[in-house]
Design a protein around this nucleic acid. Structure first.
Length: 419
RNA sequence: GCCCCCAUCGACUAGCGGCCUAGGUCACCACCCUUUCAAGGUGGCAGCACGGGUUCGAAUCCCGUUGGGGGCACCA
């Protein structure tokens, strides 16, 4: 039997990163076993809000590189079928009417148990299980009924979901058994926590895929990081491509204890991916990000600046801080400037023949010798005058990129501004 | 309150009875490199929650305690 799983988001709010991690495990598992991965929206109504949420979910998943098979499905579409099945169960005596609603008859004796693919055997005593409502008095199915019915109808073989569903599972198994269906394999993966050990929420930082994207994380890095949250192929490997993740993924190696989301490690990993990009792919990434952020920057200039940046930033949102000076005026802090150094620098730079990094370096080195000062002393005020910041890409490259005219103007202005 | 789950460095984890003097990665610290910031290099700090068992031998198995999480809807 081939594998078939489903990603089942509810269309409320933004797609949460914890949920995405669960979806990733589903997708990885399906790809690993050459199976199918469905996308089923667990909606109970159709509205503009739902539409927007579905759109956001699909966009986020696509951006991350998690694709699904076939059309997006909607739980709402099987509502009628759920009603029919519920009435069938009543007719068969497996369920009964109660105050207009329909309840499933749970066993009075024994227990309901299953071998969870990540948590091992889980057992619930029948005495603890009350007869759950499966159809509301208004005829709409309840989640714990609609979900297993859909799983059955869709031929789902493995239900991989957050472990907050553990206590729903006996009810769903009972539904399936009453229906005469074979329950799927269940795999309950631990949830992801924020740094304070509590549920990952907004105040910990980015939580939706859109936010991670806006902060300048790249999809392969985020995928790699997410995969390692609660799963590890061994004790050594950390950087893995999409293909490698697919190849090595297994449910058996998913941990049973919850993991904490570590933003610092994500930053590091994002830097690894950014640095590993081929030069033009890197430039393309910068460009795309700048456009998404609404920065109307000159393409050629940004591309030219890319190499000077690649070793510098771990997240794309550091971009404006590093190369913004190339695309707009700067306001240097006067206290960081030095009149004498800048005046001398202006003279030295005027004499540079061909305006390129090597020649600029030569001129500035000579200036250091002339002033009898360390490069760090001489370069600091120049950097501030030209880039408006104490931190920038390499000075020679920065000046070369900026051009002779603008550079000289800023150096001279810096000399005037200096105390 | 009842039920279920979980427990290795600050974080992610490897470990599935002897390869453990507990390994890797992030973070942190120190040093090196260095025009800033990074990147890189070298070294370092740091952990089996606690208490009982089982065993020749336990991070690994069992029980209890403590701590954390989740669930107890005509929500999903």
């Amino acid at each position: 039997m081939s594998v078939r799983v489903r990603m089942a988001p509810s269309p409320t709010g933004l797609l949460h990163i914890g949920g995405v991690r669960t979806f990733l495990f589903n997708w990885l598992f399906a790809r690993r076993w050459d199976g199918e991965c469905l996308l089923r929206i667990e909606n109970t109504d159709t509205s503009r809000e739902v539409e927007a949420a579905v759109d956001q979910i699909e966009r986020s998943l696509r951006w991350l590189g998690i694709e699904w098979d076939g059309e997006t499905r909607f739980q709402l579409d099987s509502m009628e079928r759920c009603g029919e099945e519920a009435r069938r169960l009543v007719a068969e005596g497996a369920a009964y009417e109660d105050d207009g609603a329909i309840r499933l008859r749970m066993p009075d004796e024994g227990s309901i148990a299953w071998d969870d693919a990540v948590k091992g055997r889980i057992e619930f005593d029948a005495h603890e299980l009350e007869d759950p409502v499966i159809l509301r008095s208004d005829g709409r199915p309840v989640y714990n009924f609609a979900s297993p019915v859909d799983d059955w109808l869709d031929g789902i073989t493995h239900v991989i979901r957050g472990d907050d569903h553990v206590s729903n599972t006996p009810k769903q198994i009972a539904v399936l058994r009453a229906l005469g269906a074979e329950p799927p394999v269940y795999a309950h993966v631990p949830n992801v926590f924020g740094e304070d050990g509590r549920k990952l929420s907004k105040r910990h930082g980015a939580v939706s895929v859109d936010e991670f994207r806006a902060q300048g994380y790249v999809a392969p890095a985020l995928m790699n990081f997410l995969a390692l949250l609660g799963w590890a192929p061994d004790g050594e490997t950390t950087i893995m491509s999409r293909d490698e993740l697919v190849e090595r993924f297994s449910l058996e190696r998913v941990g049973r204890s919850p993991a904490t989301f570590d933003y610092a490690k994500l930053d590091w990993m994002n830097g690894v991916y950014l640095r590993g990009l081929p030069p033009d792919a890197y430039a393309g990434t910068l460009l795309e990000y700048a456009r998404e952020r609404g920065l109307d920057w000159d393409e050629a200039l940004l591309r030219a600046a890319a190499p000077a940046l690649q070793e510098k930033i771990a997240r794309l949102d550091e971009l404006p801080g590093f190369v913004g000076f190339l695309f707009g005026d700067v306001e240097p802090e006067a206290a960081l400037l030095d009149r004498q150094t800048l005046a001398a620098a202006a003279v030295a730079l005027e004499e540079v023949g061909s305006w390129e990094p090597a020649a600029i370096e030569e001129a500035l080195k000579a200036l250091c010798a002339e002033l009898g000062a360390k490069p760090r002393q001489v370069f600091a005020p120049i950097r501030v005058a030209v880039t408006g910041s104490k931190v920038s890409p390499g000075l020679y490259e920065s000046l070369a990129l900026l051009g002779r005219e603008v550079t000289l103007a800023r150096v001279r202005r810096g000399a005037e501004l200096a105390p």
